[in-house]
Design a protein around this nucleic acid. Sequence first.
RNA 1: GGCCCGUUGGUCAAGCGGUUAAGACAUCGCCCUCUCACGGCGAAAACAUGGGUUCGAUUCCCGUACGGGUCACCA
Length: 483
Amino acid sequence: MNRNTVTRFAPSPTGYMHIGNLRTALYAYLIAKHDDGCFILRIEDTDRERLVTGAEDVIKSTMAQTRLLYDEGPDVGGEHGPYIQSERKPIYMEYAKQLVESGHAYYCFCTKERLEQLHEEDATGGYDRHCRNLSKEEVEKNLAAGLPFVIRQKMPLEGRTTYTDAVFGEIGCDNRELQDQILMKADGYPTYNFAHVVDDHLMGVTHVVRGSEYLTSTPKYALLYDTFGWPRPVYVHLPLLMGKNEDGSVSKLSKRHGAVSFQDLVADGYLPEAIINYIALLGWCPKGEDATTEFFTLEELKSVFTVEAINKSPAVFDFDKLLWFNGEYIKKLPKEEYLALVKPYATFELPAGLDLEKLLLLLQGRIGKLSEVAEKSAFFLALPEYDTSLFINKKNKVTPELAKEVLTLALPLLEKAESFDNDTLYALLLKVAEELGCKSGAVMWCLRIAVSGLAVTPGGATEIMEVIGKDEALRRIALALQK
RNA sequence: GGCCCGUUGGUCAAGCGGUUAAGACAUCGCCCUCUCACGGCGAAAACAUGGGUUCGAUUCCCGUACGGGUCACCA
């Protein structure tokens, strides 16, 4: 590990990990680790009114589950701590005062009421810089009187500020568009605008990786670096993640698009590895020959990921594709691991004679997410109501009449079956087909309908019978004969 | 509204002046199969638009349209 490339993930503790945030964390991690650099976790909790208890744990556990391991952070320490902004409180005021002294910032005593009134008069005007030129005496007097204050950045009134973003290229804005933004709030805490700049510098962050919603406010931050005389970091702004609305339009991915937090997804039976793999591809694509490759482990991503290959345009989050990815990951899981993961989702009541593990294994190649085992196994637990018309299958030339014949013949044979495993049953039923002179598919079709009551099932007739066991299988076939 | 950004099939996307414009998901068809799934084969489906620049534009420049972001004592 070196400090030539240092990135950080700096979430505010909101109580859940939005999938867009997770992708930002992933990219920041990959950019650092591609160069064997340093990845930092920093908690930005300067908004004291929005504190959510336990939120920090959600962040930490998400990082642990996704293996986005940080080299420095609240619980692992590091030379640049503390890594929680509220614990760094004194630092910010110190730097803010330094800016006041150098003439790049000023005390502002305007009340919120005044600001609101200003906004009412002209909604697009912003702050009128009322306190920008208060005399030193006036400031001293107000301070001595204990008036509440904020500290604002003194923006240049003319000219233009530009910076080069690693993804979007040169971004600039006219200085007169810039507000004298608040650096220190009245409660003594810094704003994001100020705190992140101070921290990134102090922590040696070389690449600032964040969503593109910050694209247009970055000139203000660049200016802050300049006035402190600090070298500006490399800015890497990421394209937004969008969600598809019901009417077909798209907008920034949010809760109304469904389960969009990492925890929601995991609870629904998505594997962290699959989620990471999928979101890595949202806004980034490997270059050259790797462009057609879609499966990547975290380790592989570390080596192939480059900033140059990050896209500019927003990406729509596609639940269908995530589901497909997840299904592929589930399929590749070793049996034991799969069973351990899926068992918590098999919350249903288990009838006697039913082998849960066999059932779950049968489902392994046929589910997109773990939670699907419940719905897909319902018919194993209880035979659904069905109509004899289900027996009709034109491809195998099956009619309800033929079904009756097949079942009548099969029942006694099955009763005498010595073991009830897939191979034995299959061989047994082939005899029935032979005797009746029909295709094996026809026989299997009849049996499968009889034991499942469904046209589409995970597994064939004999596989199902093995799972539900001899007694239940015979019972269901006898039931079918009564129809 | 001002400023900023984006625009290749329904979605993710490759492409980086000359291509039959890849691939994946989803959709549809066929094959395999004890149904479904898996797997295999195949189909349909795209360069927003108008001007330039150029021998030649999906690719470069400008305008337009559409979409998005941002203008907080939130991050």
